[in-house]
Amino acid sequence: MIKAGVAGATGYTGIELVQLLHRHPHVEIGWITSASSAGKRLCDVHAVPWEYPLIALEEAYARAGEVDVVFLCLPHGQSIEPARRFAARGLCVIDLSADFRLGHPEAYRRWYGMEHPAPELLPQFVYGLCEVNRAQLRKARLIAVPGCYPTTVNLGLYPLAKAGWLEERVIVDSKSGVSGAGRTLKTPYLFVEANENMTPYNIGYRHRHIAEMEMVLNAASPNGGYRFTFSPHLLPVNRGILSTMYVRVPVGVTEAQVRDLYEETYAGEPFIHLLPAGQQASLRHTVHTNRCAISITPELPDDPTCRDLIIVATEDNLIKGASGQAVQCMNLALGFPETAGLL
């Protein structure tokens, strides 16, 4: 049995993580923090039965020796100093923000518009896409949990990229539940604004998550150099992401070969759900689970020479897109069964 600390436990990913850890057979919660609610109990902030006291991050530093692993569920830009301090204490650090996902300071500067305050730590973090980086995650001490959008896109396209069957142009249309924006009070996320509405944002080649798509798929491919058009949308549901990807495969590659490729690539993967021909991945396949559902559809189903495919991948943005994947990473890093606490 190990003990875990959660920094930032009252946001959507934080409370989801606490619930996952609470039922994990090999984990006890040592402490949890909240910047805005320190001094209260968790049950004072969320409708849960647990009376875990909420402490300030400074107190967590002093109590670092009480835990074995720390999850950072902090806003982007605020994980760097906690990661540095907890790593210096020898703890396993699993960061759910974007602060350590990109392995090079130049990439961070390009997409986040600032110099990374801890460039020496970047190469020490393992990118926590478990189905792709499982070997590196075993016994890893510093882990960066992937973004929610890139998890669907990378898992949806990884087999094609690895086989060299993904041509340069990639168009991605993604839709996310409102919880993907975090527990923030901003006008676009108010009920009246989001309900019965759907809004695109950062469309084209603008969204920072493109960097993770390029990083994973270019590294996997013998060809690389993919060109993304990414159109994310705010969907009027609480949770879930659905990404529709429009791709082209080389001449002579058939739908049957693509299906065989995906089945071979993801054989035995406990959290990948490949749908049979004729079925489409939907949010209901994955919400409240750690699964990623993937469907494959040729654009012209009656034309065996059609090279254009529509790949759909879905997930729960708070679980497989964040806290569930973080637990999956922890399981690999600390030697627990990969599915522990997630089924």
Score class of each variant (00 low, 15 high):
224 G>M: 10
216 V>K: 05
221 S>W: 01
224 G>D: 01
213 M>T: 14
223 N>M: 14
204 G>C: 03
222 P>W: 06
224 G>Y: 04
223 N>A: 11
213 M>I: 15
196 E>K: 08
201 Y>I: 01
199 T>I: 02
212 E>P: 14
210 I>C: 01
218 N>F: 09
219 A>L: 12
210 I>S: 00
200 P>K: 00
221 S>R: 14
199 T>M: 09
214 E>D: 13
221 S>H: 05
208 R>T: 01
209 H>T: 08
214 E>L: 15
205 Y>I: 14
205 Y>C: 07
214 E>Y: 08
196 E>S: 11
212 E>A: 08
218 N>A: 11
210 I>T: 00
219 A>S: 13
216 V>N: 10
217 L>I: 01
219 A>M: 06
198 M>W: 10
214 E>N: 12
225 G>I: 00
216 V>D: 04
222 P>R: 13
200 P>D: 07
220 A>M: 11
209 H>L: 11
204 G>F: 02
224 G>W: 01
207 H>V: 13
211 A>P: 09
222 P>K: 08
197 N>M: 09
200 P>G: 02
219 A>C: 14
206 R>K: 13
210 I>M: 10
199 T>S: 12
220 A>I: 06
221 S>T: 06
217 L>A: 06
215 M>P: 00
204 G>E: 04
196 E>A: 12
216 V>R: 06
225 G>N: 05
207 H>A: 01
201 Y>M: 05
206 R>Y: 04
206 R>I: 09
207 H>R: 03
197 N>C: 08
206 R>D: 02
210 I>Y: 07
221 S>L: 05
216 V>T: 03
209 H>M: 12
222 P>L: 12
222 P>S: 08
215 M>K: 15
215 M>N: 03
221 S>K: 12
218 N>G: 07
221 S>E: 03
201 Y>V: 07
198 M>H: 03
222 P>T: 02
220 A>F: 11
225 G>C: 05
201 Y>E: 03
208 R>Y: 10
200 P>E: 06
195 N>T: 12
215 M>D: 00
213 M>Q: 08
196 E>V: 15
207 H>F: 06
212 E>L: 00
197 N>T: 11
200 P>S: 04
200 P>Q: 02
223 N>W: 15
215 M>Y: 15
215 M>H: 13
218 N>I: 01
206 R>A: 09
214 E>I: 08
211 A>Q: 04
215 M>C: 02
225 G>L: 13
216 V>F: 09
200 P>R: 00
196 E>G: 13
200 P>F: 02
218 N>P: 09
221 S>F: 04
212 E>D: 15
195 N>I: 07
208 R>C: 05
211 A>F: 13
216 V>W: 06
198 M>E: 14
220 A>Q: 08
198 M>P: 02
209 H>Q: 14
214 E>A: 11
199 T>K: 01
212 E>R: 00
200 P>M: 00
209 H>K: 07
202 N>G: 01
207 H>T: 12
216 V>S: 11
217 L>N: 07
200 P>W: 01
224 G>H: 10
217 L>G: 10
199 T>V: 02
219 A>R: 15
216 V>E: 13
210 I>E: 11
209 H>P: 06
206 R>H: 05
217 L>R: 14
196 E>H: 14
217 L>Q: 12
212 E>G: 12
201 Y>L: 07
213 M>E: 12
218 N>R: 14
210 I>F: 08
198 M>K: 04
224 G>C: 03
212 E>C: 08
222 P>D: 05
202 N>C: 02
